[in-house]
Amino acid sequence: MAQRLRVRYAKRGRLRFTSHRDISRALERALRRADVPVAFSAGFSPHPKISYVGAAAPTGVASEAEYLEISVTRECDPGGLRAALDASLPPGLDVLDVVEAGTGSLADRLECSAWRIRLPGADPALARAAVERFNAAERIEVERLTKKGMRRFDAREAVVSLEAAEEAETTAGQASSQSCVILRMVVRHATPAVRPDDVLTGLRLVADFAPPVPPEVTRLAQGPLDVRTGAPADPFGLDRDNSRGGETEPVSEHVGGDL
């Protein structure tokens, strides 16, 4: 194996409806089209050496920060690979950053996620009150159907921070604006994972707060929890420090880009 590369990518807009399996097929094909020399496993049924790091954003949830690692058979320039792979993927699956893997496990660095939840049509005052109650609680038991059946767990402890804000939303083509609540939260990765919908369930349980339409959820970042800011730091920081370094894209908050 010549080189291991770490990739940060986004799923945006209508491609948020891709499942993890959909993304993995799309990525394998994109790598072939882009002529990336991916290493293959040996054996009867060879498969490309790609590992997805951390828990994938669920189907229907957009993300600005998904991570994977690729092994290649000859050295590649991370910046060039970023551009080639991004051009080869469908718009909406966007490669944001590629670095050469340094020492240490990337998975260990993905300690927490920052999420943004848009709740169009929700009442801001009710949302703020619900968030206050949520934050004041010690423990909030929620239930979710997982692969292992219905599980009951605490949705409060993993939440590092949760706040509600108001956004005046103007729908395209319409003059009228409607109230829209934005929830922002930082959640520690735990087992079982506390997902944004668990937090919404928690808000319903503590304050009977329920959004009128399906929420629009975006993962904004993943990384080690920075105790100063209370938010995830760049998980590639260590890789960049001790290698030639990749090209860093200025990653602004690019959410829900149109296709």
């Binding site: 209508r14 491609l15 409806f17 891709t18 499942s19 959909d22 094909r29 189907t59 229907g60 469908p90 718009p91 909406g92 339409v213 399906p214 296709l259």
Partner: peptide, 19 residues
């Protein structure tokens, strides 16, 4: 359509945008 997709199975099949 987008407002309906979170409620259905395999929503990606209705989204288009294939290569």
């Amino acid at each position: 359509l987008e407002a309906l997709l979170p409620k259905v199975q395999k929503p990606i099949q209705y989204v288009g945008g294939e290569l």
